[in-house]
Amino acid sequence: MWPLGRWRPGVAFFISSFLISISATGIIFIFLIVESFPIFQHEGLGFLSGSEWYPGEVYGALPMIYGTGIVTFIAVSFALPLALGSAVITSEVLSRPTRLVIKMMMELLAGIPGVVYGLLGITLLTTAVKNTFNLIDGNSFFTAGILLSIMILPTVMTLSEDALRSVPKEYRDQALALGLNRSETIFHAVLPGAIKGIAGAVLLGIGRAMGETISVMLVIGSLDRIPQPFYNIFTTGQTITSKLGREGAEALGVGYHWNALAGLGLILFLAVMGITFIGNSIVGPLSGRGINTKRKQKKR
């Protein structure tokens, strides 16, 4: 219903707000493409494959891409078992009031700002990691990954729990009637039904982990280097976000350095958008679960 012919102020206002809301992402996308274009012209594909980054000389994004990948991987590896285990207990075992309390706590945990996680990381976690693994320094991919895993835990847990609970009760009843015990019921009846939702939860968690800046920036060590050997996660490194956070203020707006940072931003943008898009498609974009970690109580 395109309200042509009745362009009252109210409707005009609704339309203009709507256009702002839906075009913002596209404008940011175009902005990143335009601002990063010179670096792709200048460095070609070497921008993606180069492993050296020296402002004014050469810009290679690979160490940052690697860092974002490995830190996200660590974060998900730690967050997923915790999230799944507690989602199973919350959805299959606990009573309704307890469940609501746990979900409320998860929501509170999700509200703690990144900079406070960074403060926790820099004061407590780096020291703990350094002493536990007898390292020369506590700043590392591993430290950043652990910090991120705590940060994405509420997202993954809440959405996984939603997925488990969306499996119809009859599935469980039938499995139990067939003589399966409770863990077998969960494995053979509940989890297969919820697997898509859980996958969506993980993807949205990944999207969040990749985009987090401050806490990672404070504990990663900011060294643009792929470790030797590449799986050595106990060394310092750099992620795309920590690079942008570190060098953004210095490079803003001018020269290849800025174009290169915009290029990093574009890579991050595309990765996060792609993953979140798939995640939202699975979890169901109409439910709003990707945004506010809550359930809609009633449908019209």
């Binding site: 020296y54 004014g56 000389e57 020369i136 320094d137 700043n139 060590g221 900011s222 060294l223 643009d224 060394t235 310092t236 570190r246």
Partner: peptide
């Protein structure tokens, strides 16, 4: 002034 330090373990600000 722009020398590369390949031995570095950490970058600070």
């Amino acid at each position: 002034e722009n020398a590369r330090a390949k031995g570095a373990n950490l970058i600070s600000g």
